[in-house]
Amino acid sequence: MHTILLTTLNARYAHTALGLRYLYANLHELQSEAKIIEFTMNEQIQSIVEDLLKHSPKIIGIGVYIWNAAQSAELIQTLKKVSPETIIVLGGPEAGYLPHRVDFSKADFIISGEGEVAFYELCKKIFANDLPEEKFIKASLPDLKAISLPYSAFNDEDVEHRYIYVEASRGCPFECEFCLSSIDEKVRNFPLDQLLEEFETLWQRGARSFKFIDRTFNLNMTFANRILDFFLSKEPPYFAHFEVIP
């Protein structure tokens, strides 16, 4: 049994939830209590609830995005109806920013922002029966040099059959009014040598589909070129996706 479950509803099976893997990688001594369980949007909510609750979890963390907000709200409602004592923690852009488009009122806590440190701290408080008074928790920006990278949390099935989502930086230099990325204070890079070591490990495990989620991959060309050189040194076929600004 696992007392912490990390879950989300992906748009399709080929997708993987990078955010869940970041949370898992940064649970420290609580990691042995945790498990990642992913679903897709076309699965029945009742079946998802049964799959989650058979683990008798104390905490369920749910990643909420634009494509799964309505289904996530239904999932929360059903979970709380069947197992009201289970503590539900939401994160992700659709839950972390107000106002909400759908009803998330049944959730116990909502983390806004980058949740690696905040989720770990919240879990510790829950286990210590020291629940925060505030339901909406604004996470402080974590130091990207201090948090653990998530790539070892991709399992063999992910590597063989699914996209491996990766990121070299967080934040965006632009201030487009329609985009939540404009809220980020600044662009921050991950330690590049450590990142390339993780990519090499994934490659050796057989990963050949890499999708970068950086808002502007080519913002720092010296940084970007080292990553491009990594892939150019590899033997095709493989797939590498970047979002760039011309």
Rank of each mutant, 00 (worst) to 15 (best):
L6C: 07
T7R: 01
L9K: 02
R12S: 14
Y13A: 04
H15D: 13
L18P: 07
L20W: 02
H28T: 01
E29W: 08
L30M: 03
E33R: 14
K35V: 06
K35P: 03
T40H: 04
N42F: 01
N42M: 01
V49H: 04
L53Y: 08
K54F: 12
K54A: 01
H55Q: 11
Y65R: 04
W67Q: 03
A70W: 00
S72M: 11
A73G: 09
L75K: 07
Q77A: 15
T78D: 08
V82H: 00
I87V: 14
I87H: 08
V89M: 07
G91C: 01
G96T: 02
Y97N: 07
L98V: 08
D103F: 09
S105G: 06
S105E: 08
K106G: 03
G113P: 09
E114I: 09
A118H: 05
F119E: 09
E121H: 13
I126W: 03
L131C: 00
K138Q: 13
A139W: 10
S140L: 11
I147A: 01
Y151I: 11
E157A: 12
D158S: 10
E160A: 15
R162F: 06
I164H: 05
R170L: 10
R170E: 11
C176Q: 11
C179M: 09
C179G: 08
S182C: 11
E185M: 03
K186R: 15
F190E: 04
P191V: 11
L196A: 02
E200A: 08
Q204R: 13
R205K: 15
G206P: 09
F210Q: 06
K211L: 11
L219C: 03
L219Q: 10
I227G: 08
I227V: 14
E235L: 03
F242V: 05
E243D: 14
V244M: 10
